[in-house]
């Protein structure tokens, strides 16, 4: 039994070491943190109070550069958005959905210079709208980030056009 406890402790120690190396404060880790905040702010677990919604929209708008472009092939949503517009869109979306979960997988960050970075990731958006319709969409997305005053901000998103007729 003692051996099993020792193994459990060793595993726990290993997990802590892994956590330290993955989440230590490098630029890559800071960028990954921004993505984590983005996913959390865009998600909605259930009913939200006005205060929660306000806090989420504030933390979301703080993640974006003055002008963030969105490129979705053949779609009217493509364009340039200010942080205020992004947070207002988020508030509108949260009112339309009962639940919404945004998950980010396979996040790969590449440094394109001292103050520029790009990232590619898989985004899964699941949830239920207020009229009961369920949705489950997965897309590959490319993002560009810029560092301003020490803070990494999103400045472009592009949905990868994988299959085209």
């Amino acid at each position: 039994m003692v051996k099993y406890i020792i193994i459990a402790l060793a595993v726990l120690l290993g997990a802590c070491a892994l956590w330290f190396f993955v989440f230590r404060s490098t630029d890559e880790a800071k960028i990954k943190k921004q993505f984590q905040i983005l996913a959390e702010s865009a998600s909605k677990a259930g009913e939200e109070t006005a205060a929660t919604l306000y806090l989420k929209s504030a933390s979301l708008s703080a993640l974006f550069d003055d002008h963030c472009s969105l490129d979705v092939a053949h779609s009217f949503v493509s364009g340039s958005y200010t942080p205020e517009e992004v947070s207002s869109k988020m508030v509108q979306a949260h009112k339309l959905f009962e639940t919404a979960t945004m998950k980010i997988y396979n996040l790969t960050v590449r440094m394109d210079g001292e103050n520029k970075a790009s990232a590619i990731f898989t985004l899964r958006f699941t949830g239920k709208s207020k009229n009961g319709a369920s949705f489950d969409e997965t897309r590959e997305i490319e993002a560009s980030l810029i560092r301003k005053e020490g803070k990494w901000l999103f400045c472009a998103f592009k949905i990868a056009q994988v299959i085209e007729r």
Binding site: Y105, N106, F121, T122, L123, R124, T138, R139, E140, A160, V162, I163
Partner: peptide, 11 residues
């Protein structure tokens, strides 16, 4: 099998 979104969703 075509990678659609990473290796999480394929066609």
């Amino acid at each position: 099998i075509v990678r659609y979104a990473g290796y999480d969703e394929m066609l």
